[in-house]
Design a protein around this nucleic acid. Structure first.
Lengths: 182, 182
DNA sequence: GCTTCGAAGTTTAGGTTTGAAGTCTTCAGG
DNA sequence: CCTGAAGACTTCAAACCTAAACTTCGAAGC
């Protein structure tokens, strides 16, 4: 994972001003929200990356551990399910599992009841790694939000889930319009 | 850019419940905000990816065009500056510029006043591509936020920039605590 | 002037992901 | 049974990234 520490970009205000200069047909308020969302997420991922790196795992491996843990005991999933869950191709999943097996985070075995299927199962070590990562992450997240009052947190959560519903239940066609899928 | 269309994850509510089950020491309200932020961003990137793909460019190339345009006329930057701006290594920047030169989106020439430096300059075609992409993106973004009232937009922008300031001026150490850098 | 150091880009080697092709297993019909 | 088809996973080649070594140029110091 590349060290994105040295990332240097203009301030949000400067960037909005530049957008106004180069593309007048743009609502600065909308752009502010979108740009802030994007930046916030990038910075958070950098932070998560440092934390997981300190535990000796990559962000990619953390994603796999997360999917397995959240699937609930006995913490088993097939490679295809994992791939769909993480938005990877099956090929990438195969290699990622290879590495994680070598590191003892998961095991891979054939399903004896259906020998086409493969079962990826979290090891005790893998679960422990996830718990450690979660402990770090939860401290970071609480710190991040510490300036927000309870009311602000509620409001923010509500607005974000509203936006999320809007993108999840609809995907834009090539023209950019959101069109319902279901 | 892999087609992440088939991404399949539990609903946000299910995921929060799973977190509670597997890691009790977690504020569901915090986790809701963080998870929604992360998902929202991922979905938006998928949407942007489709739009830029429809224009025959990748998300990666779009980032470069954006940096050049926002730098202002005459739309020139050095590879190192671009690399820092995008959070890439110089090596990656070299190859990315290679491709974009081949596609006619930018030109590369040596700075005659300082022959170590290289100048990457946006072409008319590159600028036009960016404008097209922005037209699509702005429609998408406006659609995304259409359910939010003016007051909600203002409040959301304010809260997000507040969070952004908190991560930008501080980066967590390996222990997860935010610690001021300046 | 000569040397040394640092900065800017490029090249090279290695690793991860993708898309396409291939293998193996299961299942439904003849 | 045997065959064909579909599904689950793996293998392979190509694309793109990172880290590190290398090349070149410019700026200081003696």
């Amino acid at each position: 994972m590349g060290d994105t520490t040295g990332i240097s970009e203009p301030t949000l205000e400067e960037q909005i001003a530049a957008y106004q200069r180069e593309f007048q047909d743009l609502d600065p308020q909308v752009e502010k929200i979108v740009s802030a969302l994007s930046r916030l997420n990038r910075r958070m991922n950098v932070a998560y990356g440092r934390q997981t790196a300190a535990l000796g795992i990559s962000n990619a491996e953390w994603e796999v551990l997360k999917a397995l843990v959240l699937s609930g005991a006995p913490y088993r999933m097939g490679p295809s399910d994992l791939a769909k869950r993480l938005g990877l191709t099956p090929a990438a999943m195969t290699h990622r599992i290879d590495r994680m097996v070598a590191e003892g985070l998961v095991t891979r075995e054939r399903d004896e009841s259906n020998r086409v299927r493969v079962i990826v199962e979290l090891t005790g070590e893998g679960r422990e790694k996830w718990l450690e990562a979660m402990r770090l992450a939860s401290v970071f997240e609480e710190d991040l939000l510490q300036d927000l009052s309870a009311e602000e947190r509620t409001a923010l959560g509500e607005v974000l889930t509203r936006l999320l519903r809007r993108v999840e239940h609809a995907q834009p066609d090539a023209g950019g319009r959101l069109s319902d899928l279901d």
